[in-house]
Design a protein around this nucleic acid. Structure first.
Length: 462
RNA sequence: GGCGACAUAGCCAAGCGGUAAGGCAGAGGUCUGCAAAAUCUCCAUCCCCGGUUCAAAUCCGGGUGUCGCCUCCA
């Protein structure tokens, strides 16, 4: 399998540290607000990474942190007139609800920064002992000049960063690139005790602590949004290198941004839509399809029409499954060579740095085989089984039965049947005007009628 | 100032040297009272200019345009 490694800026063959196992870490949210659909892209993508490795038979350990102490959380607490803990709890819970709703499987471990405070302090202390950190009046900074490899992940020369960069002056720092490990608290802020006095940790240390705790000193893949390459991941990696001489992770994967009408979506630009809001309007699998229809490293432009198109596309899969009848599918493995060849091309696509757009094309080919009445039934059933298997690897088909059999009350069902009878009476009298009126009126209610030689059927139209 | 990405049909999007996947939308045929569904068929030479090559959307050089990182940020 080839993965694009941000560190080397090229695709590399993936070789796990331990055969058959994947140790994966992806940066989670800072819980100070509902996350937006740009964030959702990252969560969704690494969910697919995890699912695909599982599909390949790997034993996966997936860790995602929840940052529950941070300046922005404190700000939000002031804005909502409460304490930071209340805010963190509220939005952590919302985060879990929304990722569940998006069909994202929960990572195996979701540690929180405040749960690992002693380890964070120990790590900073260790850095200081080794000469990579210095204290200035209760604040502790990482000394980037002490680490020759600093910049090796993001490909930055620290010297180049001065001209034109919007660097806020901090007279305490020895070098502008030095970053905060421990931050002295101001009055009224939440505090933890430390060798440097009361304060709270900087953002970059918690991920090192949490990832190494669950995955070991050095692990396979570290991921996140492209904006995290610098400084966040550079700084994480710097701490790991300073401590052990080993990089934190061997492969660094970063997803591209979601843009709003060509402009970056971000909380600070105030042009964001929360995942929570979008889920109220559109199906989770349509949102998933929208993201997966483009390669994860490319920027993607958000647009409601595209979500609607995506919804239609997903519906295509379901129509194929409905056509074959889910209950007609047995447990036997797929044996048709033609269908197995499709599985291979699916894997080829995914093995090429997660080319989900191409993998989806294979899903459509399977859907077409499934629905085509020209094919023999066993072939169609094999295609349907493969469609389900591969679709689930991408996170689709969470509950096909439910989606295919819309639940509506019995009384409504009876009323629809009644209208159908009236309409059929009209049709026998060749009263086409009335028949069409009934059909149109039902359609306006979302009920779609299909006439066939065997009689009329109806279904709810999404 | 430094670093980087991208430009393919009406729209979205693969493709990474051998003559343009897939989806949405659209057109036509079959079927149908009509429609829907199903089914068959059709729909691009790849931003511009130069170069390398038997062969380029794919490589090189130069343009133009869009975007991102260097500050909290997925």
């Amino acid at each position: 399998m080839l993965l694009y490694n941000t560190k080397t800026r090229k695709k590399e063959e993936f070789i796990p540290l331990e055969e058959g196992k994947l140790k994966l870490y992806a940066c989670g949210p800072t819980v100070y607000n509902y996350f937006h659909i740009g964030n959702a892209r990252a969560f969704l993508f690494f969910d697919v990474v995890r699912r695909y490795f599982e599909y390949l038979g790997y034993e996966v350990s997936y860790v995602q942190n929840i940052t529950d102490i941070d300046d922005k959380i404190i700000e939000q607490a002031i804005a909502e007139n409460t304490d930071f803990k209340t805010i963190a709890d509220k939005y952590s819970e919302a985060f879990l609800e929304d990722t569940d709703a998006l069909g994202i499987k929960r990572p195996h471990f979701q540690p929180r920064a405040t749960e690992v405070m002693p380890q964070i302090i120990a790590l900073i202390h260790d850095l200081q002992q080794k000469g990579f950190a210095y204290e200035v009046e209760g604040d502790v900074y990482f000394d980037t000049a002490a680490l020759p490899e600093y910049g090796s992940l993001s490909g930055k020369q620290i010297e180049d960063q001065k001209a034109g960069a919007r660097v806020a002056e901090n007279i305490q720092k020895k070098h502008p690139a030095d970053f905060t490990l421990w931050k002295k608290s101001k009055p009224g802020e939440p505090v933890w005790d430390s060798p440097w006095g009361e304060g709270r940790p900087g953002w970059h240390t918690e991920c090192v602590v949490m990832s190494q705790h669950h995955l070991g000193q050095s692990f396979d893949i570290h991921g996140g949004g492209i904006d995290l390459v610098f400084p966040h991941h550079e700084n994480e990696n710097a701490q790991a290198l300073a401590l052990s001489g080993k990089p934190l992770a061997r492969y660094w994967m970063h997803n591209g941004f979601l843009n709003m009408e060509g402009e970056k979506m971000s909380k600070s630009l105030d042009n964001f839509i929360t995942a929570r809001d979008i889920l109220k309007q559109y199906d989770a699998e349509a949102i998933r399809f929208f993201f997966l229809s483009k390669h994860y490293r490319s920027p993607i432009d958000f647009n409601r029409e595209l979500i609607i198109e995506s919804d239609k596309a997903v519906d295509n899969f379901y129509k194929a499954l409905a056509g074959i009848g889910m209950d007609s599918l047995d447990e036997n493995p797929v044996s048709s060579p033609e269908i197995l060849a499709h599985e291979e091309s699916f894997q080829d696509s995914m093995n090429d740095d997660f080319n989900t757009a191409k993998a989806i094309a294979t899903l459509f080919e399977l859907a077409n085989i499934t629905r085509s009445a020209n094919n023999e039934l066993p072939l169609r059933q094999d295609a349907a089984k493969m469609l389900l298997k591969l679709g689930r690897t991408l996170g689709f088909f969470k509950d096909p039965e439910k989606r295919l059999t819309e639940e509506i009350p019995d009384l409504s069902k009876a009323l629809v049947e009644m209208m159908l009878n009236y309409r059929n009476d009209a049709r026998e009298r060749k009263d086409w005007a009335l028949a069409d009126k009934i059909r149109n009126d039902l359609l306006a209610l979302g009920i779609e009628i299909k006439d066939s030689p065997e009689g009329s059927t109806w279904n709810m139209r999404k």
